[in-house]
Structures are given as C-alpha cells and as structure tokens.
C-alpha cells in the first residue's frame, strides 16, 4: 500500500515538474499576468493597482488581472507572491506596510521585505496631512503641541489600526515634537474618518486622496504636511520641517514587485512596461484623479528609501514594544 502511494506521489510530482519550461523571456508575457493587491477590493491600493494593471495590459496585449488577497496587515498577499513561481506572471502591489513595517511587527513572517522580492518600480508616493476637525480649537501645529505639552496624554489621535504607517508615523512625529497623546485605533480608514468627524479624536494623519475631500468640504483643517515640500494643492500648509520638527517625514508609497528569482530579461520587460505606463499622460491623469501623483525613482533610490524606512519603523516598533506574535 505504502509503495503504491509513494509511486503515485512520485508520478504526481513528476507531473508537477513537467509543465514548467524555463520562463521564455523573449516572448514574455505570453499569458495573463496576475497582480496581487494585498488589500480588499475597493480601497485606494486596489484603485491604484487596477489603473496600473489596465495600463500595462493595453501596452503588453496580455491581460493583467488584479487579484485581491487581503488579510493580516497585507502580509498574506505579500507572502503569496514571495513564495510563488518566479516567472514574472505573479506580481505584488507593494506598500510600506508589507515591505518595511510587517517584518518588524509580526514575529511570524515567511518572507523578507528586501530579499524575497525584486523591485520593478515605484508607482506613486505621497506625504501625509495632519488634520484636525473644522471646529477644532487648534489652528496651528504649534498650538496643538503647546496644548499637548501643557496637558500630557489628554489628546487623542485616531489611526486605521495598530502598526499602520499612520500610527507609527504619528508616534514618530509626536516623539520628535516631545509630546504624548493617546492612540485610538480603528478598524480601517473609513471607521477612523467617521470617528474623526464625530469628534472622538482630536487629530489624525491621512493621505491626500482621503484628506483633500474633507478639507475642501470644510469638515477638516490641515495643520501640517509630512513631506519634504509643501503640496501644490495646499500652499499655505507648512511642512513639519518648516515647523522645526526634524526627522519626522512620513509618506505612503506603492511599488510593483516581482518574486526575487524572476529572470532578468523578464524583469527588464516588466520595468519597461511600467515605465512606459507611467510616462503616458492618460495614466498620469487617471492616477491623479484617483488621488495619486505618479512618482518615479531609480531602483537604488527606491532601495535606499525602503532601507531608511525599515530602520525608522523598526526603532518605533521596538520602542513601543508592538511586536505581534
């Protein structure tokens, strides 16, 4: 009996080995490419992923299909890509949560944000905007900090969850400003915005695509921008560096990644496809209307940015003892 099972298993594994000829790079892609978005359908990451997939599909002539594999702070989707066949037919829409936060945050993780992936390129990058409700007593970041200093631990800030970039970034900003506030985590961006608008928390940070509608609709006021430069849409809002807070920049970014051992010619094809997609004004416009500014970066700079964030997030997570087992 055992020999029978063993021989069947042997035959099956042979079968499994057979139909994988070495990825023929010269005619890549010759079938549908799956882009794994590690968040639920309908979110901003999903929107960006679908726009990019659509653009790359029209350039390559083969379908680029978005598959949402959500869960565990986007690590399930990232792990799936890390362990897939490295043939370029399964790609990951990577964000900082999967690449540089999760490796610190989760004790059990089956991939490495740097070594498990080969980057194809950056898609978009944006700073966060610090918001207070429109009827808030704080009309500047300095006023907020002054109050927080006089009343330690009394202010609340909301985030879309523990260990999100919003949470870690705000902790860093508060630490750099020398104040403390209570963290109120919500279950995702939408509930956190509802809590913010309902006056449950005193301030939040959000990306421009979530923040701008609230600012324009007079529901929220922007006090600071966490990027290196002011936003064209908000010329009067100072950056945190303008306010004298050093080393507290934070940003959200999306990049396209392939599994590490993807053949170089396939990577080159994918990089050129992405590059041409992002150079097309129609796609730039589509992304901008969805709230994202196209940002390109050469691969060494992307790597450097990720390493820098990896170090910074690691520090906060250790300091706050946030590791999830």
């Amino acid at each position: 009996m055992f020999r029978f099972i063993a021989s069947v298993a042997c035959a099956l594994s042979l079968l499994a080995a057979l139909p994988h000829p070495p990825a023929a790079a010269q005619n890549f892609p010759s079938r549908a490419v799956t882009v794994i978005v590690p968040f639920a359908a309908g979110g901003p990451t999903d929107a960006a992923g679908r726009i990019i997939a659509r653009a790359m599909q029209s350039l390559s002539g083969e379908p680029f299909v978005v598959e949402n594999v959500a869960g565990a702070g986007s690590t399930i989707g990232a792990a799936k890509v890390a362990h897939t066949q490295p043939d370029g037919y399964t790609l990951l829409l990577a964000t900082s949560s999967a690449m540089v936060v999760a490796p610190h945050l989760y004790a059990k993780i089956t991939y490495d944000g740097f070594r498990s992936f080969a980057p194809i390129g950056l898609i978009t990058e944006a700073p966060f905007i610090l918001l207070v409700p429109a009827n808030s007593r704080f009309d500047s970041y300095d006023a907020l900090v002054a109050y927080a200093r006089a009343h330690p631990g009394q202010l609340n800030y909301g985030t879309p969850g523990l260990g999100t970039v919003q949470h870690l970034g705000l902790e860093r900003l508060l630490e750099a400003s020398g104040v403390k506030a209570a963290h109120v985590p919500y279950k995702g961006t939408a509930p956190s915005l509802i809590g913010f608008l309902g006056g449950e928390v005193d301030f939040i940070v959000e990306t421009p695509n979530a923040a701008m509608p609230l600012i324009k609709g007079d529901r929220a006021r922007a006090l600071a921008v966490t990027g290196p430069a002011r936003l064209p849409a908000l010329p009067d809002v100072p950056t945190v560096a303008d306010l004298g807070v050093k080393g507290a920049d934070m940003r959200s970014w999306f990049a396209l990644m392939a599994p590490r051992d993807t053949p170089a010619p396939v990577l080159a094809t994918l990089r050129s496809l992405l590059e041409r997609s992002l150079a097309d004004p129609a796609n730039v416009k589509a992304l901008r209307e969805a709230g994202f500014e196209v940002a390109t970066m050469d691969l060494p700079s992307l790597h450097k940015m990720m390493e820098q964030e990896y170090g910074q997030f690691g520090q906060i997570i250790k300091a706050q003892n946030l590791v999830i087992r």
Partner: peptide
C-alpha cells in the same frame, strides 16, 4: 473573469 486557474499544475496547467 474570476482569476481561477482552470487546470492546476498537477494536470499540466500553470
């Protein structure tokens, strides 16, 4: 258009 593989690797698909 669900992204489900019709035939798996054991049956010669991908």
């Amino acid at each position: 258009g669900l992204p489900l593989p019709l035939l798996g690797p054991w049956l010669g698909g991908y």
